[in-house]
Nucleic acid binder design. Structure first.
Lengths: 156, 156
DNA sequence: TGCAATCGTTGGTTTCATACAATCATCTTG
DNA sequence: CAAGATGATTGTATGAAACCAACGATTGCA
């Protein structure tokens, strides 16, 4: 136990920092969630990251049945956030593609989030900022990549 | 711009790290969300942090109407996560209090999250861990306290 | 004391998410 | 080419969440 004793305070600091980050993330998503629901936003995040996808593939990634997803797609299409497209190679498949409007919504959230983070970083001393980068890289490496499914729970 | 040029890479690292943290947070909440909905979990988080509260006060903090919240409370009570109590000082008020079961649910999530974070920290070199603590404290200070309302969006 | 304000619940509705089963269209394969 | 498999939508149903309006109980004040 001698060597690991500094884990506890580090965990404290991380928990606290995670709360600050969550606040930032939530704040960045708030405006978008007035336009679309969280499940709908998840779809747009997926589409903007992976590009247009088949209905079934999307349903699977989101962990819902195809019928459920078809209804969600209805709402996204109705709102002008996405469009259904034919797949010329396979006419029974339907591709869901984000519209400019849909991509714009995700971008606005991402930009907003990044801006909020930059604001915070701008309030830090440059030297601290440098150390933060190194530390966070180490943390991220140790954490490994979160699965897509996990990230989607909270909408990226 | 000369001095602020290191903000961009720092923001990159922070965005990436926030994704890792989000994965951890989502993973820690996943089991609980099989028992209660996110809105219900938010109530339990609030109750476990602030203690028993009046119906109206809870509704206000959650940003929903009292009638909406009354229904949510019904479900929490039905599930054994909370109980309605009389306020002896004011008989028209109703206090919602978490049960042991309700508190236990929140605790399990918090513990799980902390454990996941400690796991990650345990994989870092001790020296990095020390630097991380300092950096995160600086970040948290610069970020300021997120509002309760913001945190509740994603369930703390 | 009596009337107005406050607190919470309930009735009535709407929207969304979700699932299962049935159906239609299109591939694929024997 | 004729099944059988596959992909998506639609019919049907349930449950959560949310709102407004109406109501009953209680307080508080004039």
């Amino acid at each position: 136990m001698s060597k690991g004793d500094d884990i506890r305070p580090a965990a404290d600091a991380t928990v606290t920092a995670s709360r600050a980050l969550l606040g930032i993330i939530a704040r960045s998503m708030l405006p978008a969630l007035e336009d679309v629901s969280l499940p709908q936003f998840r779809v747009l995040v997926l589409l903007s990251a992976a590009g247009p996808l088949r209905m079934g593939a999307l349903a699977e990634r989101l962990g819902v049945t195809v019928s459920t997803f078809s209804r969600t797609a209805d709402r996204l299409v109705a709102g002008g956030w996405a469009v259904r497209e034919d797949n010329p190679d396979n006419r029974r498949e339907v591709i869901l593609a984000p519209t400019e409007k849909g991509l714009g919504l995700v971008t606005s959230v991402t930009d907003h989030r990044r801006q909020l983070i930059e604001d915070v970083l701008g309030r830090m001393a440059p030297a601290e900022r440098g150390r933060l980068v190194d530390s966070l890289r180490a943390f991220t490496d140790a954490a490994g990549e979160p699965s897509v499914a996990e990230l989607l729970i909270l909408g990226l």
